[in-house]
Simulated scan of single mutants.
Amino acid sequence: MKKKALIVWGGWDGHEPEQVASIFQGILQEENVEVEVSDTLEAYADPEKLKSLDLIIPHWTMGEIEKNLVNNISEAVMSGVGIAGCHGGMCDSFRNNVDWQFMTGGNWVAHPGNDGVEYMVNIKHSSSGLLEGIEDFKVVSEQYYLHVDPAVEVLATTRFPVVVGPHSLNTPVDMPVVWTKRWGLGRVFYSSLGHVANVVTMPQVTQIMRNGFLWAAEGKGLYKGMKAPTYGAVGNGNNRVYSGMGDSN
């Protein structure tokens, strides 16, 4: 039975979302995945439809989204649907929605030097074999500095600073470039590479995304029949119990 994926693109045109969505569609179709492509956030309005998918690929930068739509996505991923994406299309999508940031594992805060910075992507040896066979490589693009969930498993990094700026006098840091995490039963995959279409079509970047898409989409079958975890009481039991996303404190 074919796996099913939904790609939703939009937001800031500078990230060439339509072109990147088309590349992602081609990658998935090569892997015999049935793909639906949408240019509206209303594609997230039907929670049952989302739960019927194997994979959600957001590619929407600097937008605003209704809380109920994020809730729908979150619940689908918690039930086992994978979510995977790149660059600002996934981790600079909705700056005012912390639920989205918690689910995806991080959020963009800067790209010192802007576009055209040459930097190294360093593949890490970890428990994951997702990037096996891919060697360290150079990219000329935006070098993303992100605020990152410490729970992620980091699969690739880049060293800061490369460009002089207010961050330069800090100790050098290895910033995550590619990571995975879990959200309920769902698999989450992210790569900060992919500013524009010609970066996504770099052989290494295309392979990273292909591997990430397939890994994220496989999770639903592996955890079929398991009960998805939701927010629960912690600590001394006096904390509020959450049954879904978007509740106020």
Rank of each mutant, 00 (worst) to 15 (best):
V77L: 02
G10A: 07
K224Q: 15
G219V: 10
E66P: 03
W9V: 06
Q101C: 11
N211I: 05
A156L: 11
R159W: 00
N32I: 02
M175C: 09
V109Q: 11
P150C: 06
V140P: 00
P47N: 05
A21F: 00
Y190D: 02
T206L: 14
M202K: 14
R182K: 15
N32H: 13
A5Y: 09
D99C: 07
E132W: 01
Q19I: 09
T104N: 12
G113A: 04
V152S: 07
E34A: 11
I27A: 07
N32W: 01
M90C: 03
T206G: 03
Q29E: 15
A216L: 08
N239S: 15
P166M: 12
F189L: 12
I56D: 05
L69I: 10
M226C: 07
G10E: 08
D46A: 07
S191W: 02
K67H: 11
E42A: 11
K124V: 13
N211V: 05
E153K: 04
N211E: 03
S38G: 00
Y223K: 13
W12V: 09
K181V: 00
A228R: 06
L50H: 08
E142W: 09
V148T: 15
K49P: 00
V234C: 07
M78S: 13
A217D: 07
R210Q: 11
L69D: 03
R240K: 15
A21V: 04
N122R: 15
E118R: 15
E18I: 09
G10D: 02
L214T: 10
E48W: 10
E34Q: 13
D149A: 10
A216R: 05
D174K: 13
V20M: 06
G194N: 04
H147M: 14
L214D: 07
M120D: 15
G10S: 09
M175F: 09
D115S: 12
A45R: 12
L131D: 05
M245E: 12
K67C: 05
L69W: 08
I23T: 13
Q143R: 15
M209S: 03
I134C: 08
M62F: 15
M202S: 08
G80H: 07
N211Q: 11
W9E: 08
G165M: 03
K220M: 06
K138F: 02
G246P: 03
N68P: 00
D13N: 05
K138C: 09
A151W: 00
D247Y: 13
S128P: 04
D149W: 09
A76Y: 08
W215M: 00
L155C: 09
G235Y: 14
Y145N: 13
H125I: 07
H87L: 07
V152W: 11
G232I: 07
K227Q: 14
R240C: 00
S22L: 11
I27K: 04
Y119F: 15
P112E: 06
H147V: 15
M209D: 08
K181N: 09
G246I: 11
H111E: 11
T206W: 05
P17L: 04
H167F: 15
S126N: 12
L214E: 05
K138L: 09
Q143I: 13
G194V: 00
W60S: 06
